[in-house]
Amino acid sequence: MKFKIIGFITLVLIVFAISCQNDGQVEFNRYYSGGSQIYQSHCQNCHGAKGEGLQALIPPLTDSIYLNSNKTALACYVKNGLKGKITIHNKVFDEEMPSSDLSPIEIAKVLTYVTNSFGNKMGTINLEQVTADLGKCK
């Protein structure tokens, strides 16, 4: 009897764990696939289909350390553009990225795509996070 109860509780816990994970996974997939479309139409021309950038003109999007350490600033970069020197993979880039007219949800989607493609793996960057980050743009 005791075993049955323990077995049942374990089963319930497993089901919960799977369904929670699935919720997270579903959200991730939704952001990621939407982000892929936005990337193609708004970012790919310059940053390339593989996030490879262009020589010393356009930085690649493959520097996970840079993306991670600037995670909360990324939304502002996408919205307002980026100017001045930045160091990516130990190379200095000093060009200007134009601002964009993407909405916060689109920014969240495209950031989820970029930070989980090209060898990056940072998980979902959702709307709440982007809204909060945008409120702190310099």
């Binding site: 021309n45 310059c46 262009l54 003109l57 134009p98």
Partner: peptide
């Protein structure tokens, strides 16, 4: 910002 980076 559009097609030139792709072209080059």
């Amino acid at each position: 910002p559009t097609i030139c980076p792709v072209m080059h």
